[in-house]
């Protein structure tokens, strides 16, 4: 089995050691390349750590405003319906400031693919609480741990989205080879759904933020297995418009 980094990842990424973004960047690139569409793809890239992607990713990209990537992608896709259009966003971007743009893209069943990286905090700005931050998780704005009596529960966006009329919704993680391979399959299914004009596809990926979690990378992956995955269940939730869960 020959393996070589995809051409889209043309220089080394700029993420922290052990950051999941590097793996996800590569998975997106591999899928686009394997499907033969990477030269015909356009990405709308979020603010946050995701914004480091265009510097190292050889696909036509636009830097969206904070939270608006799904709306920007919808504008592109509606003008250029024959191109593959995706967003690449973190949890602060897609679910806090951009909740409305994300949800309404799903509500309108826009024929785009949203790649949503859940690392349960605002990475780029220094590890503040995100909508996905776990109960009791310490962040720089929840120094005593997230108090859900004040902040509400961690946001499971797929639970909110899965009853809408969309094409494909899945959640994967990066904690081991098997999960990474599954996540890659989800990404492929999402892009295929878009190619078939089935509508909105959404892949949430549980990913480590070693720097802000102040964890060794291996420990960070263990934390996802042990503490994150029970809150954000893995699997396929909508496929070809059929609801699975």
């Amino acid at each position: 089995m020959l393996k070589k980094k995809p051409a889209a990842c043309f220089v080394d990424n700029k993420y922290c050691p052990g950051c999941g973004h590097g793996i996800i960047n590569r998975l997106v690139a591999e899928v686009l390349e394997e499907m033969g569409i990477y030269e015909e793809s356009i990405g709308a890239i979020a603010v946050g750590c995701a914004s480091l992607m265009p510097e190292t990713f050889a696909v036509d990209c636009i830097q969206a405003q904070h939270g608006r990537a799904a709306a920007v992608a919808a504008g592109i896709k509606r003008c250029r319906p024959d191109k593959t259009v995706f967003t690449y966003q973190g949890d602060g971007d897609a679910l806090a400031i951009g909740f409305s743009e994300t949800m309404y893209s799903a509500i309108r069943n826009e024929n785009i693919t949203v790649i949503f990286v859940n690392n349960s905090n605002f990475g780029m700005t220094g590890g503040q609480m995100a909508p996905t931050t776990l109960e009791n998780q310490k962040t720089t704005t929840t120094p005593r741990g997230r108090n859900i009596a004040e902040t509400g529960d961690p946001l499971n966006v797929i639970n909110m989205m899965k009853d809408l009329n969309t094409a494909y919704i899945a959640r994967g993680s990066l904690t081991n080879n098997a999960n990474i391979m599954k996540t890659k399959k989800y990404i492929r299914n999402a892009f295929e759904a878009q190619q078939n004009s089935e509508g909105f596809s959404f892949i949430e990926i549980l990913s480590p933020c070693t720097t802000n979690w102040k964890m060794d990378p291996i420990k960070a992956m263990e934390h996802i297995e042990k503490n994150v995955t029970p809150v954000y269940e893995l699997g396929v939730f909508v496929e070809r418009g059929e609801k699975n869960a």
């Binding site: 636009i62 969206a64 405003q65 608006r68 920007v72 919808a74 504008g75 509606r78 003008c79 309404y104």
Partner: peptide, 26 residues
């Protein structure tokens, strides 16, 4: 052409941003 009644002005101008980036008059 494409017409979208967006959920907000924020989303509307963002779609225009995308469409303009695609080279379309938006």
């Amino acid at each position: 052409g494409n017409f979208v009644q967006s959920e907000s002005e924020l989303a509307g101008i963002s779609m225009v941003y995308g469409a303009a980036a695609a080279g379309f008059r938006a």
